[in-house]
Design a protein around this nucleic acid. Structure first.
Lengths: 235, 235
DNA sequence: ACAAAAGTGTTATACTTACACCCATGT
DNA sequence: ACATGGGTGTAAGTATAACACTTTTGT
């Protein structure tokens, strides 16, 4: 036990721990919600599937570490991320005692550094087909999915999974994937448009139909107004 | 860097951190929601207000540490607790870099070890009158309160704040305190009783009126049936 | 002309909200 | 007898859920 200025250092008598962060990275493509998983090229557990993770460094906050880890894999910055908690069972990492703070991230699946991801052996896997992952990563995924489900119903975070311009059929299929449920087309559109937080453009997406679907844009200013008027985004 | 069996130890090159847990302890008394806070008798920040906390030890999970810290203050075991996350800003504890996992606990305010709590300088403070707390503890409290609000509306956790037997006026005033809002007596009772998860007893609580209010008991078995039938607790 | 997805309104039902009086009992 | 909190039902309004046809356009 050390002393400084005559007082016992109250910290040094305690244990210190390795702390990691793990990222549950959601993307959306062709009607299915996916996770960016790693086929590990390194130990421990080489060859197995896992979330992208990394150790916390002395000079960074936990949030910053999560952002760094995400950026290391995808090249992306300023991504929507939420902490889902810290996992600290004694034997969660059989190699050593490591605590892990889990975060989920929502990214636009066609806007990230593909070479970089590939260099880490990263693969998009449909949320319905997640394999066995190392440690407690499956548990993290379950919790992240549950939180996404809950939060997406009540805050406009789904848009982070789409390009800036999106169509209403696209949006509906996104929410169907998140909620794991089908939605009525007319009711869905009515409800969303009634909130008046979208800007309709003149452009159409003709990749899915001859007729084409109008592109919309989420309008953050209108959303702010909505919230200030005491209302909420809700599906 | 050390080697074992010829492989480099992948962990040792990383930093290690002090990890604390802090408990936001909710109680309910006479129509107001309260927190059990500590007037610190020790450094750092002697004399200031804080949450009850403690350091994580090598041989315990984070959840177990939270339970231990709660027990150290209240003598209670098997208490309803939820982790709200880990806080890891660089300077959150000005003395040293310490990460802290925050948990909230719901306890029955007239069932804990009062001498023990007193020996730690613990005091019940109405949630509406929380003073400035050390570090980021006010932030933890805000988040805990928000989560309690959200979760109490949708899961039957409020009962943890009441004795086994409670009256409907009591229950209503509890939910009013949690939601920070008044509720209509008739609608409240209708909704709750419609879920059919209460057992009405023959006993009455006459401490608040001449007539007396019937004691009820939350019935976990009936609640399980409710959930299995696909319905949910909801207020 | 036809196939395929986009777009559009109405009605029935369930849920939510508002609201006022009688009851039981101790003093 | 009266003061105090406990207990009860109904009606109006609002939100949700169910449902089917027309439009556009590329082939």
């Amino acid at each position: 036990m050390s002393e400084t200025n005559g007082i016992v250092n109250l910290y040094e008598q305690n244990d210190r721990f390795y702390v990691a962060v793990d990222c549950i990275i959601f993307g959306f493509h062709q009607g299915t919600l996916k996770l960016l998983l790693i086929k590990r090229k390194f130990d421990p557990c080489m060859g197995e599937w896992s979330l992208m993770g990394g150790f916390l460094n002395k000079d960074e906050s936990i949030d910053a570490a999560a952002e760094r880890v995400l950026q290391d894999l995808t090249g992306l910055e300023n991504v929507y991320m939420e902490q889902i908690g810290i996992f600290g069972e004694l034997d969660r990492d059989p190699g050593e005692r490591v605590l892990s703070a889990a975060y989920y991230a929502l990214i636009n699946i066609d806007d990230y550094d593909k070479e970089l991801a590939e260099s880490h052996n990263a693969v998009w896997v449909p949320i319905t087909e997640i394999p066995d992952l190392i440690f407690d990563h499956n548990k993290m995924v379950r919790i992240a999915q549950k939180q996404l489900k809950r939060k997406a119903a009540v805050e406009p975070i789904g848009f982070n999974l789409l390009p800036e311009l999106f169509t209403l059929p696209q949006l509906q299929s996104l929410y169907e994937a998140i909620f794991g449920d089908t939605l009525d087309k007319r009711n869905f559109r009515k409800k969303l448009l009634a909130m008046d937080v979208f800007e309709k453009t003149e452009e159409k997406d003709k990749s899915n139909s001859k007729r084409g679907a109008y592109y919309y844009r989420f309008d953050y200013d209108k959303y702010t107004e909505l919230v200030q008027s005491g209302l909420r985004f809700a599906l």
